[in-house]
Design a protein around this nucleic acid. Structure first.
Lengths: 215, 215
DNA sequence: AAATCCATACGCAGTTCTGCGTATTTTGAT
DNA sequence: ATCAAAATACGCAGAACTGCGTATGGATTT
């Protein structure tokens, strides 16, 4: 069964190089190409249906992230694979957020490209280790806090104020000035906070407060 | 530089098969093995430092998910790669939540195992397309609206490791011990991190890293 | 071959933080 | 009005951190 592909790439040299690599797999049929996101969207609208888009990120008129978002909004069944270079992680991540199914490197050989396309169309996602790790970390975030029950440790209002100042990275002197109390008082409050939270330094106190949603 | 590895696997046949495949790469040094999570934790505590654990999921006494969580809590610098079969996605996902850096299939050949280990130790994550897609879907839900400007400040992988240790509230001495480098080196790294992030203390560095999703 | 970046390592001086003890004043509840 | 808790305040000693200068070896790039 042929796989219908569209390509968005403004650099004609890169485009040709990519097309050359795809010819090795006859089932990969390039239906049309575009030089930017806006042109791609027009062609998707007017031409025949496609299964997958290979999408560059930096393009004039409309960039790849925006184009990806538009495609997923209007044609959610079309998969988007991002064409990228190693040093473009920021946009790449945005593209994944916008709905891309993964990405391939511009220097990938035909085998790797084919594999990424197949992974994508069979219900997977093509992702480099670096991007994979970023997503793992993001995914862990909201769950980490829910794992343990939250306590309030009997902190007073004033102590919570101090904790907020600590969290902002202020020194004891700065906190004293902010709250209009002496350095010594700041210290005593923080001693009490540490005892209640059972920690021994700023960072631990901040983490524990954050884990328990005290600040 | 040798990579120090521990293995937790209760099936002696599978263990031997894995060890055989690792011998192809002399830099991968198996420091010790364990038949369950509890035994592994004991050995980590009592024996020399390791870089990475290859972890089975189904084990008696203490399963791989629990063991992973324990390791990441107490030794966040140790990477965990899960040993799994294709039909084990549920636990696998839990393991990733618990802090695993990725996984390898029990039937992977030595090349794939080596690649996964290297990906992991150089700051990436080893993930199959199937698992990758699961994480992508999860990640898009809660954070779709979250597109602020993020920078990476040119931090190196090593510096990001240091940042993670800082975030956990460790002292310089503890970090030095965890990463097996001198106290002086820890300080120099942190000085460089502060300069790149343009901050002057731990708390500010941690906040800035967190704001920009560096950790 | 030279230049650059990265990771490693050390010392000095100064700042900031932490634990412990002590003490007075203010506030709120009985 | 009294009692308890909370907030305020001070000093000492030691631990931890920070800024700055310097240096070396390895890896990468030019």
């Amino acid at each position: 069964m042929p796989i219908h592909i569209a390509i968005a790439e403004d650099n004609s040299f890169a485009l040709q190089a990519l097309k050359d690599r795809l010819t090795k797999y006859p089932e990969l049929v390039i239906k049309y190409t575009a030089e930017n996101g806006r042109e791609l969207l027009k062609k998707i609208k007017s031409k025949s249906n496609i299964d997958l888009v290979l999408m560059d990120l930096q393009m004039p008129e409309m960039d790849g992230v925006t184009a990806t978002a538009e495609i997923k909004k209007n044609y959610p069944h079309i998969k988007v694979l991002i064409l990228t270079m190693f040093d473009d992680e920021e946009n790449l991540f945005n593209a994944i957020m916008a709905g891309a199914s993964g990405y391939i490197l511009k220097e990938d050989d035909s085998t790797q490209i084919h594999e990424a396309i197949m992974d994508t169309l069979t219900g997977g996602a093509a992702m480099s280790p670096t991007i994979a790790l970023k997503t793992l970390k993001l995914i862990r975030q909201p769950f980490a806090a829910d794992q343990q029950e939250k306590r309030d440790f009997g902190l007073t209002i004033r102590e919570l104020e101090l904790l907020t100042q600590l969290k902002n990275g202020l020194t004891y002197d700065e906190i004293a000035s902010n709250l209009q109390i002496s350095y010594h008082t700041v210290r005593k409050h923080i001693e009490n906070i540490y005892r209640k939270l059972q920690v021994n330094n700023k960072v631990e106190a901040i983490n524990k407060a954050s884990d328990n949603r005290l600040t």
